[in-house]
């Protein structure tokens, strides 16, 4: 099956772009949702489930908008439940498994810093719906960052064990950094027109925020990993397929099920 490109006729590639934004939120939301009833404390359970809910809300808005831009009548549910893994446009950092609590919090932190920069820029997007979704999402991801950043610092400066795990989480996450700032999946006209944001242009700010946090946390970037790429183009890690199998099984077994 070929990978379809849900671009619109009106604005080339905008639906494709918005779908990628929505998939980032959806897939990270799914990973956070896996922690519900499994977090180390009830407070963390509430925190992570609240984060998952915010991300799911963002994903719904973005996927619904992507469906409208595509103009083929696909709803947010059609896009979430009926695409193959090769048709998802999310970054790989959102999809890799949770691992331990250090990785869970570090991932939320890294992606929150990234989402903050992206949504802050998109709040001024020439596409009014994308601008509205982004302005709202910006407030939410800023709050997520505060929480996750606290944890990264607490773990980095906590016990020898927590520091070791936080450092290991950083090494596990680092191969997926480059991909966050790769513009090759975004139609260049969208960036020129002020509709999309160049992700490459966000890297310095993101790196500066990360360096500050790591310095407060007494953690160091290993800087020696081999970068992963391709998820934005549908070449995902083997983990996304498993995640989607779980997410989509009910809808595929009982199409249109509701309760």
């Amino acid at each position: 099956m070929t990978v379809e490109d849900p671009r619109t006729t009106a604005v080339t590639g905008l639906g494709h772009y918005v779908l990628g934004l929505g998939d980032d939120a959806l897939v990270l939301s799914e990973r956070c949702a896996e922690l519900i009833t499994r977090s180390p404390t009830i407070e963390e359970d509430l925190a992570i489930s609240n984060i998952a809910l915010d991300l799911l809300g963002q994903a719904r808005g973005l996927l619904a908008h992507a469906g409208e831009l595509e103009g083929a009548g696909r709803s947010e549910d059609d896009l979430a439940y009926l695409r193959l893994d090769t048709q998802f446009r999310n970054c790989a950092l959102a999809e890799v498994p949770n691992g331990d609590f250090a990785f869970v919090m570090l991932r939320i932190y890294l992606l929150s810093e990234y989402f903050i920069l992206r949504y802050a820029a998109l709040a001024d997007s020439a596409d009014s719906q994308l601008s509205a979704i982004s302005a709202k999402a910006l407030k939410e991801v800023s709050y997520h960052k505060l929480h996750a950043r606290d944890w990264v610092i607490r773990l980095g400066r906590g016990t020898a064990e927590s520091a070791k795990r936080a450092q290991a989480a950083l090494a596990d996450a680092e191969p997926y950094f480059d991909e966050l700032f790769d513009d090759t999946w975004i139609h260049p006209d969208l960036i020129t027109a002020g509709i999309a944001v160049s992700e490459a242009a966000l890297r310095d700010q993101w790196q500066a925020a990360l360096d500050k946090t790591l310095s407060e946390a007494d953690l160091e970037l290993p800087g020696a990993s081999r970068p992963f790429s391709g998820a934005r183009h549908g070449r995902h890690t083997e983990h996304l397929g498993n995640l989607l199998a779980l997410t989509q099984s009910l809808h595929r077994a009982h199409p249109g099920a509701s309760w």
């Binding site: 809910l53 915010d54 991300l55 799911l56 809300g57 719904r60 808005g61 999402a137 939410e140």
Partner: peptide, 8 residues
């Protein structure tokens, strides 16, 4: 208008 994006 929703309070939060994911307001159920």
């Amino acid at each position: 208008t929703p309070t939060y994006s994911g307001c159920p």
